[in-house]
């Protein structure tokens, strides 16, 4: 296995993490796999959101593991209807709260967070239309896509968020195929194209950064979108204890750059003065990439660098303007 060294700011984050609220709204006892990245993210997001929150969950891992009747892991109102419609359900919920406040059925100054959780399949594929509708209509809600880069709940089938070259059960590497043959869908760009006030990428491996972005999103005046990189040991073929490190490696190699778009202004949120780490550090520890040969790795290396540079340019351009 490749030697993985912790970056210095990692220690800072680990200590600062102890200052986070001890209240839990996504509580223990749920049935997530060991080392589940999404579950970790949900816990942190809910800590930041607090009790005055209603959660709408798309069908998927987080829905299944948190609500096998008669158990629930949710300490806030939680609504699950179907797979592709979480953003639609949340739209109705938000519209209803707004109408009820206007009509005096709820206190006029009442403020309730609405947070939607959908996986990458439920967001980038089947739920994209409902998401687009919710964003463009301007419902005040935070949509979090917990992206573990395949349909993990049904057994690791490829989605449009599965990265180039990854082997899944429906994009398997074989004698004549190297796995997923196209580049991962750029969800943040799609969300941002709706001219919403705040969009960001985040990862539970950077808890304070994640929670800061959640706070910013919840305080924004309008719909917001968070693309949360979520390590899935079961689906990726990685040791559960490497979940946090893998999230950091994804950010450090530029595979999943951490940035935000605040009212049109791009900002890289991970300070990387030494530049990007070699891509192999990230790829080689995962079973889903283990079959990749140099030609495919070169494609990824080049594209990751280009995308990263593009973001840096957008940052420079929009911060200046």
């Amino acid at each position: 296995m490749t030697e993985i060294t912790r970056p210095k700011e990692g220690f800072l984050n680990v200590f600062a993490y102890r200052t986070i609220s001890r209240d839990e709204y996504f509580v223990r006892g749920h049935r997530a796999c060991q080392g589940c990245g999404p579950a970790l993210g949900l816990r942190l997001i809910m800590k930041e959101a607090g009790p005055n929150t209603i959660v709408v969950n798309a069908t998927g891992c987080m829905e299944i593991i948190s609500s096998p009747y008669p158990y629930t892991a949710w300490n806030v109102p939680w609504i699950h209807v179907a797979f592709e419609n979480a953003a639609a359900v949340a739209s109705g919920l938000e519209a209803a709260l707004k109408a009820m406040r206007k009509k005096g059925k709820l206190p006029a100054d009442e403020k309730t967070n609405i947070i939607v959780f959908g996986g990458d399949g439920g967001t980038a594929d089947i739920g994209l239309q409902a998401l687009s509708g919710a964003l463009i209509r301007g419902h005040k809600l935070l949509y979090v896509c917990y992206d573990n880069e395949a349909y993990m709940n049904t057994g690791v089938q490829g989605s449009s968020a599965t990265p180039f070259g990854a082997s899944t059960t429906t994009t398997p590497a074989g004698k004549v195929s190297f796995g997923q043959g196209y580049w991962k869908k750029n969800l943040v760009a799609i969300a941002a194209a709706h001219n919403i006030p705040y969009t960001a990428t985040a990862c539970p491996s950077y808890p304070l950064d994640l929670m800061r972005k959640v706070r910013k999103a919840l305080d924004a005046d309008g719909p917001t979108f968070l693309h949360m990189f979520s390590v899935c040991p079961t689906g990726w073929g990685t040791p559960p204890e490497l979940t946090i490190r893998l999230g950091r490696l994804a950010a450090e190699t530029g595979v999943f750059p951490l940035y935000e778009i605040d009212h049109g202004k791009y900002k890289m949120t991970l300070n990387q003065p030494e530049g990007l780490r070699p891509i192999e550090d990230y790829l080689r520890v995962q079973k889903r990439f283990r079959h990749l040969k140099e030609p495919e790795i070169e494609v990824i290396r080049k594209r990751v660098k280009e995308e990263y540079e593009r973001l840096r340019k957008l940052e420079a351009f929009t911060q200046e303007a």
Partner: peptide
Amino acid sequence: SAAIGASMPGA
């Protein structure tokens, strides 16, 4: 879907 979501808080 939105109709269901809207019903949930009692609208």
